[in-house]
Computed example of a mutant assay.
Amino acid sequence: MTNPVLRAINNPLGDPALDLFLQWCDGKGIRPIPMAPADIAVFVRQAQTLGIEKVAATVAAISKAYLSRGLADPTAGGPVAAAMNEIAWVEPPRSWPKDKKPWFLQLPHELQVYLSERDDEQTRVIRRAQNEAADARKALAATKETNDGIQQNTAA
């Protein structure tokens, strides 16, 4: 921001991630607070060349700036989530019913990433447990065959 007073008001902690958004707003000649979610989604789309990590950090900083002022978070879901999905698609978890997957896409990006990672981890744990159970059944069957062979030899 070119005006240091406005910068101090809008970014009192000097968060560099928020500065990126404030510079964008300054360049467009618009006030950063309040702003509609659709306008923040435009910022996300235009900033996508910076990469998802930087854009996600900036969106988190925007959210924090609004919430710290007691305002509704314009980055929570809706257009901002859709714009984030355009940059970095997160596949809805397989465990979610098909009719609920559109809801997943409306969640904030960080929550989508978390839920997707948890679902993947849960799937790995279940598969590992199933494989261990199958191995145990095979070992039990092999032991049973060995015991049956021993019993037949002692009976003869």
Rank of each mutant, 00 (worst) to 15 (best):
T2M: 14
T2N: 15
N3Q: 07
V5E: 12
I9A: 14
I9N: 05
N10I: 00
N11F: 06
P12H: 05
L13N: 13
D15R: 04
W24Q: 03
D26Q: 13
K28Y: 09
K28H: 13
I30C: 10
P37D: 07
A38L: 08
I40L: 11
V42T: 15
V44A: 06
R45H: 01
Q46I: 03
Q48I: 04
L50P: 02
L50R: 15
I52Q: 10
K54C: 06
K54R: 15
A56R: 06
A57R: 07
A57C: 02
V59C: 01
A61D: 02
A61F: 05
I62Q: 00
S63R: 13
A72E: 14
D73V: 08
P74Q: 04
G78L: 03
P79S: 14
A81G: 11
M84P: 04
N85L: 13
E86S: 10
E86C: 05
E86M: 11
V90S: 00
E91C: 05
E91T: 15
P93D: 08
P93V: 04
P93K: 05
S95L: 06
W96Y: 15
P97N: 08
K98T: 12
K101E: 13
P102V: 06
W103K: 11
W103L: 13
P108W: 00
P108L: 03
Q112G: 01
V113I: 13
E117W: 00
R118P: 02
T123Y: 12
A129T: 08
E132W: 05
E132V: 14
A136G: 02
K138I: 14
L140K: 11
T143I: 03
T143Y: 11
E145T: 09
E145A: 12
N147P: 00
N147H: 07
D148P: 00
I150P: 01
A156R: 14
